[in-house]
Write a protein that binds this DNA or RNA. Structure first.
Length: 89
DNA sequence: GTTATGACTCCAG
DNA sequence: ACTGGAGCCATAA
């Protein structure tokens, strides 16, 4: 079972209108945040990687701006350019 | 084996 | 609230 597969499983399990932090995934798998980020970066395109954000709710830097649009389309609440963590919890 | 880099997070200013 | 520096861990050269 590759780390990527585990991360993929977690990411696809994220409900619509919800997001997860890299650190959260890392903790869940018992790996460091860097590992989680790296794994997510290697994920397939089938996985909603845009639902994975920074610990403070900031979307990933890659595809800058695209993650935001996708999240909003999914129904994720944004507050001042960042995902509303309160909604996540 | 050593060095550099990153889709990270935390702490301090 | 924003920026910068430090820490962490795996991959690549």
């Amino acid at each position: 079972m590759d780390l990527v597969a585990k991360v993929r499983t977690i990411v696809v399990a994220i409900p619509k209108g919800h997001v997860a932090a890299y650190g959260e995934i890392g903790r869940e798998l018992g790996i460091s945040p860097r590992e989680a980020g790296r794994a997510v970066a290697l994920l397939d395109e089938d996985v909603p990687w845009w639902r994975v954000v920074y610990a403070d709710g900031t979307p990933a830097t890659c595809h800058d701006g695209e993650a935001r649009a996708l999240l909003e389309a999914e129904g994720v609440v944004f507050r001042g350019g960042r995902v509303d963590m309160l909604t996540i919890r």
